[in-house]
Structures are given as structure tokens and as C-alpha cells.
């Protein structure tokens, strides 16, 4: 199992578009991907669950990934979470 903690850098936290991107990227992997913020846990397969994590900017998200492609999945999902958002 791969575990990593990531601080959100997006100014709007884990908002709808980032949540959508997390779900989209997670969908490409076979591994089980779970995001945790404080007490709340969410499967990266469910946009609703990810949005309900309600992680604000600067919050730390814990990623737990287990499965055949866990290493690649970790890098891909972590990259989405760590991105600073859209530049205008």
C-alpha cells in the first residue's frame, strides 16, 4: 500500500473542478484509492464523496492507494491534488 500526505495549494481548496479531475484520473487505475481529510474518508471513484471531503486550501489530504498499479496511481493523483489551480 502507498501512503502520501499532500497539502492543497489550490486557492479554492478541493473544489468541484479539482474533484472532477481527481475522479477522472483515479478512474484510469485499477488500484483502490482512498482520500482522507481529518475524520472523513472518501473513495476517489465518487465525485460526491470527494467534494464532501470539503478540504480547504492548505488542508492536508492523505492518500492511500492499494493495488497492482499503486505507484503510478499515487503519482498521478498526487499531481492533481498538488496543482496550484488555473492561472488566469
Amino acid at each position: 500500500m502507498q501512503i502520501r500526505e499532500i497539502r492543497l495549494r489550490n486557492t479554492q481548496g478541493l473544489h468541484a473542478r479539482v474533484a472532477a479531475r481527481v475522479v477522472k484520473v483515479a478512474g484510469r487505475f485499477k488500484s483502490r484509492i482512498v482520500l482522507t481529510v481529518g475524520e472523513r474518508r472518501a473513495s476517489a471513484r465518487s465525485i460526491m464523496a470527494v467534494m464532501m471531503l470539503a478540504a480547504a486550501m492548505g488542508a492536508t489530504v492523505r492518500l492511500e492507494i492499494e493495488g497492482p498499479d499503486e505507484l503510478a496511481a499515487l503519482e498521478a493523483v498526487a499531481a492533481v491534488l498538488a496543482s496550484p489551480g488555473e492561472r488566469r
Binding site: 468541484a16 473542478r17 472532477a20 475522479v23 477522472k24 471513484r45 465518487s46 465525485i47 460526491m48 464523496a49
Partner: peptide, 12 residues
């Protein structure tokens, strides 16, 4: 995209 995903979300 977000709406499409909500529609396909297991909770819905």
C-alpha cells in the same frame, strides 16, 4: 463534466 460524474456516482 462534473454533472456527468455526479450522474454516474454510485451515491446517485
Amino acid at each position: 463534466d462534473v454533472h456527468w460524474m455526479i450522474l454516474n456516482d454510485p451515491t446517485l
